[in-house]
């Protein structure tokens, strides 16, 4: 099944119509969730008033921070086992975009935290800490790839690091949870959980799906760019050899 996707030519054909669909659907869903989130849904006094409207940006960013790292690790694993070039191209494309959404999650969380907790940064919040370390994992991955002198080495080193990081994520998360559960005070907001009213649920799901589709479209476009770059490099190498 992986082998079917592993052909770069087939990927180019597939993504040439799939990426625009992702963009269109993603834009629609995000627009609807923003309209609902900013204009329609009532503010929740229990969550500190209007500030909870940041949720429709913050929660999809948090979801993508986790999902994109896992996606990168799975792609790295597929490349490491089967050496399918497209999987490596995908992992490489996910990294900068995943780092962007992870940074967005941290920034919006911080902005949300200021009026809610009275501080920009809360060490006691396990989620902030976990996402911060996720961000460092992305940075390390990109820095390592950039430091390697050949594409093949970058792919191998990146895959090893992404997999090591992925198996450490549960341990990091557990340790951070333990750390914060001992320090926690009562001011922590509860966004998730069954307390959330249904009026917020649909816009939130729409924003999560919309951001995911937009992300997937961007990953595909970036992969296309990488494939074109590699082809151009191949042709150039052949030209040089032929001269």
């Amino acid at each position: 099944m992986f082998s079917w996707f592993a052909n770069p030519h087939r990927f180019l054909t597939l993504s040439s119509w799939l990426a625009p669909i992702c963009y269109a659907l993603g834009a629609l869903l995000i627009a609807w969730s923003l309209w609902q989130g900013l204009w329609i849904v009532p503010k929740d006094e229990y969550q500190g008033g209007d500030i909870m409207r940041v949720m429709f940006l913050h929660v999809p960013a948090a979801w993508l921070a986790m999902a994109s790292y896992m996606g990168m690790a799975v792609m790295s694993f597929i490349w490491f086992i089967w050496r399918h070039e497209v999987a490596d191209i995908a992992a490489k494309a996910i990294a900068p975009l995943g780092a962007t959404w992870t940074a967005l999650c941290l920034a919006t969380g911080s902005i949300w935290g200021k009026p809610t907790w009275g501080t920009w940064w809360q060490w006691d919040d396990a989620r902030m800490m976990s996402v911060l370390f996720m961000f460092f994992l992305f940075l390390g991955y990109m820095a390592l790839r950039a430091a390697m002198d050949t594409r093949q080495k970058a792919a191998r080193a990146g895959a090893i690091l992404a997999m090591v990081g992925a198996i450490n994520v549960p341990l990091i998360k557990f340790s951070v949870d333990l750390f914060t559960s001992l320090h926690q005070d009562a001011s922590v907001i509860t966004v998730d959980g069954p307390k959330m009213a249904a009026v917020y649920l649909w816009p939130l799901l729409a924003s999560g799906l919309g951001h995911s589709l937009l992300f997937a479209g961007l990953v595909m476009t970036l992969m296309r760019a990488e494939i074109w770059q590699r082809r151009a490099a191949q042709i150039r190498a052949r030209l040089m050899a032929g001269d």
Binding site: F133, G140, A143, G165, N168, I172
Partner: peptide, 9 residues
């Protein structure tokens, strides 16, 4: 940069 997140636990 690589080691920092792994040192956390």
């Amino acid at each position: 940069l690589i080691a920092l997140p792994l040192y956390v636990p």
